[in-house]
Each structure stands twice: as structure tokens, then as C-alpha cells.
Amino acid sequence: MTTTDDILPRYVEIQRELEARIMSGAWPPGHRVPSEHELVELYGCSRMTVNKALSALANAGLILRRRRSGSFVASPKSQETVLEIHDIKAEILGTGKAYRFEILAREARRAGPEDAEHLGVAPDTQVLALTVRHFAAERPFVVEERLINLATVPAAKAEPFAAAPPGTWLLDRIAWTDAEHAIRAVSANAQTAARLDMARGGACLVVERRTWQAGEAITWVRLTYPGDRHRLVGRFNPGGLRPGAREGTKGA
């Protein structure tokens, strides 16, 4: 006999069906989840019902939802990048300091050997190269050198980046599924020292990162911070970052 307790809400039924595809491996990490419109057509239900199902999967950490990009199957926690991809603009504003940025250089071009190596793409792939300087309370905070793969993000070519810096713009629009970080210390050359208002030869903290969407390169970025004004901070447990903790640079 079927009781009221046996009847699941429609969104839970949809959630469980989608979860089964993820957990079985039929939808691997990086797989694009059908859009809300597609799921509405598939299940013959309202968009609100589909949205509740997707929100439940996102809250469980099984999918990533990105505005304008859609939803993607998340990587298992054990495979997640150690460093969180943080928004420089939000990070600076979060300290209570005024923020601004300026684009020092911009060029759409075919990837040369160095570009191709940085992004992990074939030579001659169309890329957008940007150099950006970020300020906190009118003091140079970090210099960003970035390559965007225009095969993956074609809209970047025409984007003026007037309202938001490239990193913020990408995080708002493109869902990344994998990331790789490398951290090192370098001495500031004359150009870097001038850009960061520091002594030539001074120590710099450099973070290089590549991100992908389902195996397709999105961007490569090199972030150069004045070493005496920044440090990396994060709290860990054996499973990774502590709940609520995050990795990032802290300005002095």
C-alpha cells in the first residue's frame, strides 16, 4: 500500500535521477548538465521544480552552477585544487580599502610558442593577452598577466573590461572544472619594481594558474605580488581546507 510518506516531491525525484548519473560515472567531472530549459522539457515540470533539484545538487557539492554558463559536474573533493580561485576585486574590497584597476596592455593574437605552452593549446590558437595592475587604496596590490583562450571564451575579444577586471569577468561567466597552481618567489626586475612601487631586486610572490572547462583551456594567469606586503594564508585538515576557510593572499 502506498502512503503519503512514500510519495516524494517532484524535485527530489529529479534530483535523485541526476545524482544517480553523476555517482555512476555516466556524467564524469566536467560534464555539462542539461540546461534548465532542457530538463523542463525532459521531465515535463516547471522551471522552479528543476531549479530546486539543481540547487540541491549544488548544495551537496555534486555540481557547479555558473551564471550564463550553465551547470557542470564537480570534481571530487580529493581532486579539488588546494588554492581557491579568488576574486582580486572582492578580496581588496573585503579589506575595506578602495579598489581600482588599469589595463596596461591588451592584444588579440595567434598564440606563439610561449603562449601555447602557458595555456596548453596548439600554436596559432587565437588568444587575448592582457596585463592588468590592481590597486588597494591607491597602492599597487598585484600585477596580473593573463592569456584567455578565445576558442573557449570568444566573447572576451570584444569585452572592454570597463566595469570589472578580466578575472572577475571570467568568474562571473565561465564555469571552470579543473585548475592548476604553481607558486614561486622571484626578484623584481626593473619593470616589475616600477609597476609595484617597490625596490628593484626585491622579493615577489608569484602565483601561476591555469583553468580548464571539461578539458578545454580557459585561461592562464601570472599574479605577481610584492613579497614584503603579502603572505599566503589557509587552514587545513587532512581532508583539505577547513569548512569556511579559504586560501588567498593577504596584503600587509
Rank of each mutant, 00 (worst) to 15 (best):
V82A: 15
I103D: 04
R146N: 11
H31W: 02
L62I: 08
I88D: 06
C45I: 15
R68A: 10
E80K: 11
A129Y: 08
A252G: 12
N59F: 13
R231C: 04
S46P: 10
S35V: 04
S46T: 15
G248A: 02
G61H: 02
E208C: 06
H134L: 09
V142I: 14
Y99I: 09
P238E: 02
G234C: 01
G112A: 11
H31I: 01
G215L: 08
F236V: 03
E84F: 01
F141L: 08
S35G: 07
T125V: 12
A105W: 05
E216V: 11
L64N: 15
V73R: 01
V221C: 08
G227Y: 05
V143S: 05
T152D: 03
V127A: 05
V132W: 01
R242N: 01
Y99K: 07
P29R: 02
K97C: 12
R210P: 00
V153R: 00
W220N: 00
D178S: 07
P76M: 00
R242K: 03
D6T: 02
V206P: 09
A182G: 03
W176V: 10
P165V: 04
L147E: 08
D124N: 14
T211A: 09
P34V: 09
R184F: 13
V82E: 12
L205D: 12
K89M: 10
G215S: 06
G234Q: 08
I183C: 11
L64F: 11
D115R: 10
I148C: 03
M1D: 00
Y43N: 05
I63V: 10
R10H: 14
A116I: 14
I88V: 14
V12F: 09
W176I: 09
F141H: 13
C45E: 14
H134G: 06
L205Q: 15
R67M: 03
A136W: 07
V233Q: 06
S78P: 00
A158Y: 13
V186F: 10
L62D: 02
E80G: 01
A60P: 13
P166W: 03
R109I: 13
I63P: 02
E114H: 14
G167F: 09
A98S: 10
D6N: 07
L119F: 03
P165N: 12
A199M: 06
L130M: 08
T81Y: 04
V132C: 08
V82Y: 11
R195A: 08
P34I: 05
I88T: 15
S69P: 00
G244V: 00
A116E: 11
R222C: 15
V153W: 00
T219H: 03
Y99L: 09
S35C: 01
E107H: 13
A203E: 15
A188P: 09
E247L: 13
Q79S: 12
T49Q: 07
G120E: 04
T125M: 06
R32M: 03
G61D: 03
G112K: 13
G215V: 02
